[in-house]
């Protein structure tokens, strides 16, 4: 067992150059989507099957009327208690020796269970391949002792990766040095994530950042009680549908989850 790693995202150093966003596409050979300018620098508008990490741009006016431009690199948080891993009927999603959550696409049956299980909205579905995709923290690079593509690309040190204890110490030290509303986000829920933020603003200021992320109760029910009850891989599609039924009722998810242009043209 190798050492558990944490990727530290210090948002006080991020310049939103999007080196990470594109480096990820380059390394993982993810094609581009056709997008629209919706009045924001942010594009694509959300994570997609072919966009595993994304810089979110957000204008924020504080109480004294100062305008700040907040940037947040979004992507898989690599939870320890990972809903996606828990719920995956085929073990396509799994924890590696580094603690990150990797994905064996060949095993994915496209049941989408992980999409509902993830409190961060990370796994994304590609209708064309009937599979989900997400960041694997560049697992093969880690195996080859290389930095993940996003971390290598980061110019300012906003992204770092290292042993869990060292990164957490760094994170708390940095948050303390920043003072004010700065905090550390990630180590206090889902048994700790392997991606940890230093947030210069209060956590609830950031769009799309859950304040109390947890695995939906239904998922726990599924994992602890139903899944062990003999569902085989061969029946996994049925199982996925069944899971969907118990978590969301009879309506099937719509394709907009993949977001604009994600799997079209």
């Amino acid at each position: 067992m190798s050492q558990e790693l944490i990727k530290l995202i210090d948002l006080s150093r991020c310049t939103a150059c999007r080196g990470c966003q594109i480096a990820c596409k380059q390394w993982n050979e993810l094609p581009a989507s056709r997008t629209k300018n919706t009045g924001s620098y942010q594009n694509p508008p959300d994570l997609q099957w072919n966009t595993w990490t994304l810089i979110r741009f957000q204008e924020h006016e504080d109480q004294s009327g100062n305008v700040k431009w907040l940037f947040r690199k979004d992507g898989c948080m690599h939870c320890t208690d990972a809903g996606c891993v828990k719920v995956c009927p085929t073990e396509a999603l799994y924890h590696t020796e580094f603690g990150n959550v990797s994905l064996n696409v060949d095993k994915c049956i496209g049941c989408k269970a992980c999409m509902y299980a993830c409190p961060f909205g990370v796994p994304k579905f590609n209708a064309a391949t009937n599979k989900i995709y997400k960041c694997d923290l560049c697992y093969t690079r880690l195996q080859g002792n290389q930095l993940p593509a996003c971390v290598l690309s980061c110019p300012t040190g906003a992204l770092q990766i290292g042993p869990k204890d060292i990164m957490l110490t760094k994170a708390y030290k940095r948050a303390k040095a920043l003072g004010g509303d700065a905090s550390v986000y990630g180590d206090k829920f889902v048994d700790g994530t392997h991606v940890v933020y230093v947030l210069p603003e209060k956590a609830d200021v950031y769009d799309h950042l859950p304040q109390d992320p947890k695995i939906p109760l239904q998922i726990i029910v599924w994992k602890e009680f139903l899944k062990p009850a003999g569902l085989m891989v061969a029946g996994a599609v049925v199982a996925g549908a069944f899971l969907h039924y118990i978590t969301h009722g009879p309506k099937m998810p719509e394709e907009e989850i993949t977001s604009e242009g994600g799997d079209k043209s």
Partner: peptide, 21 residues
């Protein structure tokens, strides 16, 4: 594959959106 040169004293392996792409 093209990625940043970690030995380079200026960029130390890092790249912006254009360079990374």
């Amino acid at each position: 594959n093209i990625e940043g040169d970690p030995d380079h004293p200026i960029n130390e392996g890092s790249l912006c959106a254009k360079g990374a792409g």
